[in-house]
């Protein structure tokens, strides 16, 4: 029996995984051949099993070779699905079990983990959802807009996961603080724990609702699933303060400034004020009012000037 597997099912170039004759021959396979064969079987799942399973794996009356292999094949999917669900709980609530599973399995098939840490597993999930989003042409505008929801929610939850682990400001409070004085432009830096996420939905409220919903579920209480979020533009800043991850909505001028910092660019305050249509003194005043809270909460770092 021989089969050529469709390229879309494979996480590496088609030429390297072709037929049973090449990789499933059974004349004393080397360690590398055995491992490659087993990894292919695990990634492709039980539907790709062939008669050579019995030639490579010992079965028994209680459990056939294919059933034994299936324990690893099913375990692989279940384990990684569980991890994605743990990292994207609001997306899981939003999509529901079957749709989330469909997207997650598709993601794992296209982009199997290439990192030693499971924390990296969700890194490309939002982009995958974006790439696989149906074209909105021909759909009513509001329906087309709703198609953006999964990827934006995924991007927001991934930002939260990053903020949890990134180098924060907890160990560097001593050399940072508030601006030297209220009349000067501050030198700002965005810590690795802060990330701006622009969305087209009221995701701040939705995240809070899903947290409450999931907590109620954990405690065995009945609660209705949160309704889908309203369509509205938001710039959300995910940040960490004293090891606790938070999300806050930014005003447009704050978002513009944070976006610039996120791109590693220093703020050109004169141009920035002109672009916003504000007098520099007005911008300076707004900035210092915001920084009093933003710096204290580790959203941004004020560097010594």
């Amino acid at each position: 029996m021989s089969q050529t597997l469709p390229a879309t099912d494979l996480p590496w170039p088609t030429a390297s995984v072709r037929t049973e004759q090449t990789h499933e021959r059974c004349d004393t396979p080397t360690l590398a051949e055995q491992q490659r064969w087993l990894l292919e079987r695990v990634l492709l799942g039980p539907q790709a099993n062939t008669r050579l399973v019995e030639e490579r794996i010992q079965g028994s009356a209680a459990l056939s070779a294919a059933q034994r292999l299936a324990i690893y094949q099913e375990g692989y999917r279940l384990r990684l699905l569980e991890c994605l669900q743990a990292e994207f709980p609001a997306l899981h609530v939003c999509l529901g079990e079957s749709l989330f599973r469909l997207f997650a399995i598709g993601y794992l098939e296209q982009q199997p983990s290439r990192h030693y840490s499971l924390y990296q597993l969700g890194e490309g999930f939002a982009d995958f959802l974006s790439r696989t989003r149906p074209a909105g042409s021909g759909l009513p505008a509001d329906t087309a807009a709703q198609l953006l929801l999964p990827e934006q929610l995924a991007r927001l939850e991934r930002a939260q996961a990053r903020a949890l682990r990134a180098m924060g400001t907890e160990q560097r409070e001593a050399d940072t603080g508030r601006p030297d004085h209220w009349l000067s432009w501050p030198v700002l830096e965005l810590p690795d724990t802060s990330q701006l996420v622009d969305v087209n939905f009221d995701l701040l409220d939705y995240l809070q609702q899903t947290d409450r919903y999931l907590l109620a579920q954990q405690q065995g209480e009945q609660q209705d699933k949160p309704p889908l979020p309203a369509v509205t533009s938001q710039s959300l800043l995910v940040y960490r303060h004293q090891y606790r991850v938070n999300v806050v909505r930014l005003e447009p001028w704050q978002a513009t400034m944070v976006r610039q910092l996120q791109q590693g660019q220093p703020c050109d305050w004169s141009r920035f004020a002109a672009a916003l249509g504000l007098a520099e003194s007005e911008l300076l005043s707004r900035l210092h009012l915001w920084l009093a809270r933003a710096a204290a909460q580790s959203m941004v770092v004020v560097l010594p000037s």
């Binding site: 991890c83 743990a86 709980p89 499971l118 949890l164 947290d211 004293q242 606790r244 991850v245």
Partner: peptide
């Protein structure tokens, strides 16, 4: 459960809602 050595508990968001330090 049929999942050997579950690991998701270690990557979840439970610390997002942990008690403040």
């Amino acid at each position: 459960s049929s999942l050997s050595t579950p690991v998701a508990a270690s990557v979840g968001r439970e610390l997002h809602i942990a008690e403040p330090l």
